[in-house]
């Protein structure tokens, strides 16, 4: 499993995004983090070629949420054969926007002195959950009523042996805020909100029955195409 972070969202372990055989010896592994509002792409570059690598640069294609490098890719010294460097690339969300399929797809180009290489990766949506995503309770009730039923999506989150308190606290570490909790017919009903970096609000109802590790998550959003990715983020956060 991945590493938690003290002051931020869940961070998945690094995965290989660009295998050396597809990039003339350059191997890239990475993951995404969000810590106190700062998004970054944490990269590991390994030189598996026979020659030194220099002149690194990185560029993102337009993407659904405008993710873009906030600084150049800083590799301070030439990368010798068999050498690995760890780099944290700060990101912002003010880049060009183009809806991608799937929504969380990111196309990346990396260059060095040898060539330019391309790869795609999927980012977890919770890196876009902002710190001030707790909706006012009155606003929540009004918005819940206002969003049409067609925009409600329902999901099952299976095999999650946590109680309502643990669920709330885990989700809050990733900027999903519990606004109200009710117990009806022996079920805990959690009402929650989150907001994405582009201003989209997502309202949630999470049903938990004591002793039952399967939860029902209902999401209401004016942009319903984000719902399945938000559900995936819930699963990732709750199961790690």
């Amino acid at each position: 499993s991945g590493v938690g972070s003290l002051s931020g969202s869940y961070v998945a372990p690094k995965a290989v995004w660009l295998p050396a055989m597809k990039a003339k010896g350059l191997e890239i592994s990475g993951t995404f983090t969000r810590q106190v509002g700062a998004i970054s792409m944490d990269l590991q570059l390994t030189n598996k070629a026979l020659q030194v690598m220099t002149d690194f640069a990185i560029q993102f294609n337009r993407n659904s949420f405008g993710l873009a490098p906030a600084a150049p890719l800083q590799v301070h010294a030439p990368l010798s054969p068999n050498q690995t460097v760890e780099i944290s690339l700060p990101l912002n969300t003010v880049g060009s926007v183009m809806k991608m399929e799937p929504l969380n797809n990111l196309q990346v180009a990396v260059k060095n002195n040898i060539d330019v290489f391309y790869f795609s990766t999927l980012y977890p949506l919770h890196i876009l959950f902002v710190e001030d995503g707790k909706m006012d309770r009155q606003m929540f009730l009004a918005t819940w009523k206002d969003i049409p039923n067609e925009n409600e999506a329902q999901f099952q989150i299976r095999d999650c042996p946590l109680n309502a308190e643990a669920v709330s606290s885990k989700l809050q570490n990733s900027n999903v805020f519990t606004i109200a909790k009710r117990n009806v017919e022996a079920q805990d009903m959690l009402y929650q909100s989150l907001r994405l970096t582009n201003g989209i609000w997502v309202l949630a109802e999470l049903r938990i029955q004591p002793g039952n590790p399967n939860f029902t998550l209902s999401l209401k959003c004016r942009a319903p195409e984000v719902s399945q990715h938000v559900c995936q983020a819930y699963e990732t956060i709750l199961k790690n």
């Binding site: 309770r137 009155q138 009730l141 819940w144 109200a180 009710r182 009806v184 017919e185 079920q187 009903m189 009402y191 109802e205 209902s218």
Partner: peptide
């Protein structure tokens, strides 16, 4: 929580979702 009528509104919402 403040007794501003919202507590009751959330209770009604939860009830209506359980017994539509």
């Amino acid at each position: 929580e403040l007794d501003d009528g919202l507590d009751e509104a959330f209770s009604r919402l939860a009830q209506s979702r359980t017994n539509p």
